[in-house]
Amino acid sequence: MSSEYAVRIAALRTTASTAESAADQIHPLRPVDGLRPAGAAIPGSRSAALLASVGSRWAERLTSLEADFRRHANALKVAATQYEVNDAEAAAAFDASYAGSLSSWAYR
């Protein structure tokens, strides 16, 4: 694991919101409803039954995809927050450390 990193926290938040937008666009898709008319229009066929299965499969996959986008968005937000916290802590630690140095230098 690399011990080096660089990040622009604002970019992470923007990316997270893009992923959420993608999830939002997927959310209203209703493949079962979309394929149902075709199945009903060819009664007695093997394809009618298969269309229902394909509709269900797509619904599951879209749900999963939507969830993936949302998970990805959440992860980015968590990372951004963590970076912010880390940065703040690092800054504080830095400041604390740096200020101590200055003090010792200043008082030397």
Partner: peptide, 22 residues
């Protein structure tokens, strides 16, 4: 969106690698 959610250009490090995989 898919292009945008790939890892921001300036982001490097372990978390960036995990995000890229995702």
């Amino acid at each position: 969106e898919l292009f945008a959610i790939t890892v921001p250009r300036d982001w490097r490090g372990s978390a960036a690698a995990s995000s890229r995989t995702s």
